[in-house]
Design a protein around this nucleic acid. Structure first.
Lengths: 237, 237
DNA sequence: TAGTGGTCTAGACCACGGT
DNA sequence: CCGTGGTCTAGACCACTAG
């Protein structure tokens, strides 16, 4: 097991970032400078930089250079999903909805089972936070609601709209996981292939049953979820 | 904006995976075969494969080849954290705790504020699921509890142990986010640099206050979190 | 125009896995 | 032994950003 050169270099650079020698926003040495300093080929220097970008520590700008990234994640509270907009306002974030498509489709089988209907409306939208594309949302909505509130659903957040018209969400089942961007999603979120993404896959229920199923795919470097679990249920197995 | 060759190739290979031409577990064409088929240099062929591994679609084994990965994520239910072990047993998963260190330290400032004490015990452990390292857990525990139950805490899950001794968790504040592996974490979880990770950062409270603060870092390709939000609180702003 | 990163090539050596 | 992937080099051309 030999220790790769590119890794040795990226670890050294990472240490400098952690030590504050390179501070957030600073420009890293250029590829040429790294080649000189560490006496390596350009490919190896590039690989070292790639390691750092892969860890989210730096972001590179073509023609300009590589810069130490400044992290500051937006928090989405799951304990009060309806408050998202108010929540974000408190964090000084303006939210914009950009609907890419909204059409009647035959739902995929697993969605048919969840929503208990064969036809659904499929909405694809991008959420912009302070005009930065941060979240791709793909949602299946039962036809009744989609038809009744289509216009508003295109321009606002799903739950906000439903709530406004007195549709009361009783329960949400959700899974949070992470993936990495494929080319298409990368384009939409303005990130490169393989960029870490956080996925919130949810089903919303009224008393009558499931009405909405969708997934929100967000940039992992700008987004996180918070939860408060209040009372614990003792194990009874 | 020219479309990179390596991307064109990885997209083509990805389509084949999605189409089922290469099925989970199958071996992809070797680098040499890709060089021949697409008439590119080895570096470009390698880059195409790298794109796919970065998206979690394939994993490569040195000396053997690249294989389409077979996903099957372990679900950690946040609605009943105490039931984790029972939950996993239901998913046919055996869990092993491997404590790396357990020592008395002066806590970092932000932890001091949370736990409201300057000295804490820092436990680092690895959780193995069916003997596959899947989760690195770094936890600060208030001294009273750490001293009283140190032996058991080393071998079992934190919450399970506390519960056993009648310490009742009233509330958990948590944040879920994602990162990518640095070299050290990569070693521990047996993944490469930049591998997607999902982080569960939590603080547990009894009636008396915070007693535990830690973060669980899991492989993003094997792990996800589920939540059930039961009753919704109407916005009152 | 000069400097930056992005892509690509051809060729080399090493380490691992299975025969 | 051979085939596989992992690392590295030297050199080339292109595209973007700035002064």
């Amino acid at each position: 097991m030999t220790f790769p050169l590119h890794l040795a270099i990226s670890e050294k650079l990472r240490d400098r970032i952690r030590a504050g020698i390179y501070r957030p926003g600073d420009q890293l040495p250029s590829e040429h400078q790294l080649m000189a300093e560490f006496e390596v080929s350009r490919i190896t220097a590039r690989r070292a930089i790639a390691n750092l970008t892969q860890q989210g520590l730096v972001n590179v700008q073509r023609g300009k250079g590589a810069f130490v990234s400044t992290q500051q994640k937006v928090v989405y509270s799951l304990s009060s999903p309806l408050l998202l907009e108010a929540d974000l306002a408190r964090q000084d974030i303006e939210i914009t909805v950009q609907t890419l498509s909204f059409e009647r489709v035959t739902a995929p089988v697993h969605v048919q089972k969840i929503l208990n209907c064969a036809i659904a409306y499929l909405q694809k939208k991008v959420l912009l936070f302070n005009n930065v594309p941060s979240c791709v949302d793909i949602t299946y909505i039962v036809p009744e609601l989609a038809k009744a509130h289509g216009k508003e659903l295109r321009q606002k957040l799903t739950f906000t709209t439903l709530e406004k018209y007195g549709i009361c969400i009783q329960k949400i089942d959700a899974v949070i996981e992470c993936t990495q961007a494929d080319y298409e999603t990368g384009e939409q979120l303005e990130v490169s292939l393989g960029h870490p993404l956080i996925v919130y896959r949810h089903t919303a229920f009224t008393e009558a049953g499931a009405i909405v199923h969708g997934e929100s795919i967000s940039r992992g470097d700008r987004f996180c979820y918070s939860i408060q679990i209040d009372r614990m249920i003792a194990p009874d197995l």
